[in-house]
């Protein structure tokens, strides 16, 4: 149930995730054997989640696009090393976290308000309140992007992606205690950022 909730929160189509485990394993085996059509199926199943996670980790959609491409290229390159008895999703999330960390180190973050405004998640019933909402979300993304790498990854995976602390610890190769500590520090920093923003609004 928790997994379904996490998937829903991540914006994955329920239909795609309902795929039978055996079927997924077959697809993976074919992809490992070099079948690009099978790899395309894996890509279709997970591209939305990887893109959303990259966006949340990097804070802007352009970098997230590049990061997503890099994630799947790495996945294709190292697919033969993947153990098909393990969940492919966790593997892709781990690659995404690593790729986004590299992107964060080597690239200047770009602000792109224009692209945020094009998002379909934003309705146009009340343009003024929508703009305020977009601004708040941008501020929030900026605050998240300003967190140190490990805190950001733990916070995004736990509080936005909705994974359990144990799952986050597994993905980040860390202990649950460390993850809890990182999450609590990040929550306090985000709260302060929101307070600063609200103080500036008034």
């Amino acid at each position: 149930m928790a997994e379904v909730a996490a998937l829903w929160m991540s914006g994955i189509e329920p239909k795609s995730d309902g795929a039978d485990a055996a079927e997924v394993a077959t697809i993976l085996e074919r992809a490992i054997a070099g079948d690009s059509a099978a790899f395309e199926q894996i890509l279709k199943l997970h591209e939305r989640r990887v893109l959303m996670l990259s966006w949340r980790l990097l804070g802007n959609i352009e970098d997230a696009q590049d990061s997503t491409q890099e994630v799947f290229l790495r996945a294709f390159k190292y697919l033969h090393r993947f153990d098909i008895t393990r969940p492919v999703e966790a593997w892709l999330v781990r690659i995404t976290v690593n790729v986004c960390r590299d992107f964060g180190r080597h690239r200047q973050r770009r602000q792109s308000l224009a692209s945020e405004l094009r998002l379909p998640g934003v309705t146009t019933a009340d343009p003024y309140s929508d703009l305020a909402s977009v601004e708040r979300k941008n501020m929030l993304r900026e605050a998240i992007a300003s967190l140190p790498d490990k805190e950001r990854a733990a916070f995004v995976l736990r509080d936005i992606e909705g994974l359990s602390t144990a799952e986050v610890a597994g993905i980040l190769n860390s202990s649950e205690t460390t993850v809890r500590s990182q999450i609590s520090i990040a929550r306090v920093k985000i709260r302060k950022a929101i307070e600063r923003f609200q103080g500036g609004e008034r």
């Binding site: 959609i61 997503t68 998640g121 929030l140």
Partner: peptide
Amino acid sequence: SQSFVKTLRADSVNSAVLVQV
């Protein structure tokens, strides 16, 4: 602040972006 953070869960990306990727 957490409830505000959770509004990010509802975000979605443009399909055109996905197609491009």
